[in-house]
């Protein structure tokens, strides 16, 4: 189960001046479903492209099953496959889109039966859909056809970027089931990202957190980008937000440093520890999940998004103004 699948050592990838992956070192294990969580722009999509060997890193190496591999390498070409965030279908019928990967491999064996099977795995009826053109599909159907085109290849590693970002609830459900079925087979690994943290935690066996192009040890609940200001009177450092609201921080190492507070350190109310600081925030959303004693709370404080979790009984109502507190010593400078 926990055989090492990928090892990344010092991997960087830049797009122009933008460093999407920054000297990233991480290990991913084979088997089951690994979720990658992180805010937008944290480098998740880039990481997936590198893991799928679509792009090469600018620096560093990627080892797959102990061997360093590169795009177009025959060792990975038919074993790892990626489904991008927006499903891309070629201007061909659904049948040709699903069987395209087989044609590339010059694998002509029982193609129709395999297309039929792959479509049924994502809940699409062969008779109804095989002859359709991409423009005759809804967003969710397109996404499922794209998934069927990957499943037919029977890859060892299936990588998905936001597979349910823009689909209806029914498609989302069908995609999730298809993934769980796939991952349950021996020797299969699924790696995926999602904007929906609770959905991700729900489907994944392991979740790793990503921030600013690197793996971070735990989930970030509050993130603040420089510049920061030192209050001349009190000597306290703050981040100034909307309408003069401020969030207190510790003394930054550089003007452009980024402050991150793990989600588990954020709490409602005014803290009582010696180093506790607090600020006002408005509750935007409270999410509860079956079987979980905790509610997921999303807030906006001084214009910045904050997430934290609290016992179901203590959850505030959306729209309420509350205090959020955290121990200053738990703030990490990145």
């Amino acid at each position: 189960m926990s055989r090492t699948l990928y090892t990344l050592s010092g991997v960087s990838r830049c797009y122009g001046a933008d460093r999407a992956l920054d000297c990233c070192t991480l290990t991913l294990y084979g088997g089951g479903i690994t979720g990658i969580a992180g805010p937008n722009g944290s480098g998740k999509s880039t990481l997936l492209k590198l893991l799928a060997f679509i792009e090469s890193p600018d620096e560093g190496s990627i080892f797959f099953q102990g061997r360093e591999e590169h795009p177009f390498s025959s060792a990975v070409r038919h074993r790892v496959t990626l489904m991008p965030q927006t499903p891309f279908l070629m201007r061909r019928r659904v049948f040709q889109n699903v069987s395209y990967g087989l044609a590339l491999k010059k694998d002509g064996e029982a193609v129709e039966a395999r297309v039929r099977q792959s479509l049924s795995r994502v809940g699409l009826d062969f008779e109804k859909f095989a002859g359709r053109w991409p423009h005759e599909l809804s967003g969710g159907e397109s996404q499922r056809v794209a998934l069927a085109a990957r499943l037919i290849l029977d890859p060892e590693v299936l990588i998905l970027d936001e597979p349910t970002a823009s689909v209806d609830a029914a498609s989302s459900f069908l995609i999730k089931n298809a993934l769980l079925d796939f991952a349950a087979k021996p020797g299969k690994t699924v790696i995926l990202t999602s904007h929906d943290a609770s959905w991700l935690e729900d489907v994944s066996d392991t979740v790793i957190f990503f921030f600013r192009g690197r793996q971070v040890p735990e989930k970030t609940g509050l993130m603040l980008f420089g510049p920061f200001y030192e209050d001349s009177g009190s000597g306290v450092w703050v981040k100034r937000g909307e309408k003069g609201a401020e969030i207190p921080v510790s003394s930054p190492p550089h003007a452009e440093s980024v402050a991150a507070v793990p989600e588990r350190c954020l709490q409602l109310g005014q803290g009582d520890g010696g180093d506790a600081v607090w600020f006002r925030a408005e509750v935007r959303e409270v999410a509860r999940r079956k079987g979980s004693p905790h509610a997921q709370v999303t807030l906006i404080g001084a214009g910045f998004p904050i997430t934290l979790s609290c016992p179901v009984g203590d959850a505030p109502d959306p729209g309420a103004m509350v205090d959020v507190t955290y121990p200053l010593t738990d703030l990490q400078w990145l």
């Binding site: 489904m83 491999k105 990957r150 290849l153």
Partner: peptide, 9 residues
């Protein structure tokens, strides 16, 4: 991206 991920050389 799609073509490479589906195994195109």
């Amino acid at each position: 991206l799609t073509l490479i991920s589906l195994g195109a050389n």
